[in-house]
């Protein structure tokens, strides 16, 4: 996967590399000066154990480095996403 429309990501599910569905993507944080994509804002599914993840209110922040691939799901590295 090389590039993707950011609107096509909305409402996609985020899955960890251990096969667990984390939740649904809500937004993407970007740095407008450098154009760098910083992180994904994810709404965790009910009952998801968010220990180890960066939590902001009821949202999880997952660094974009953790993103492995984007197709039907957004697959994130289970270790890199907990930073």
């Amino acid at each position: 996967m090389k590039s993707t429309f950011s609107r096509s990501l909305s409402k996609k599910k985020v899955m960890s590399t251990d096969g667990m569905v984390i939740g649904t993507i809500r937004n993407i944080m970007v740095d407008l000066d450098s154009g760098q994509v910083d992180s994904l804002v994810v709404r965790p599914d009910a009952g998801f154990d968010a220990t180890g993840y960066t939590v902001d209110g009821d949202r999880l922040m997952i660094p974009f480095e953790a993103v492995r691939d984007i197709r039907d799901y957004i697959v994130v590295d289970r270790y890199l996403s907990k930073q």
Binding site: S3, F5, I28, V37, F64
Partner: peptide, 17 residues
């Protein structure tokens, strides 16, 4: 601006639609 095209490999915004 209608959309942003993200490059997953370079982790950057490539284009604005």
């Amino acid at each position: 601006v209608d959309d942003a095209i993200l490059n997953v490999d370079s982790k950057k915004i490539d284009f604005l639609a």
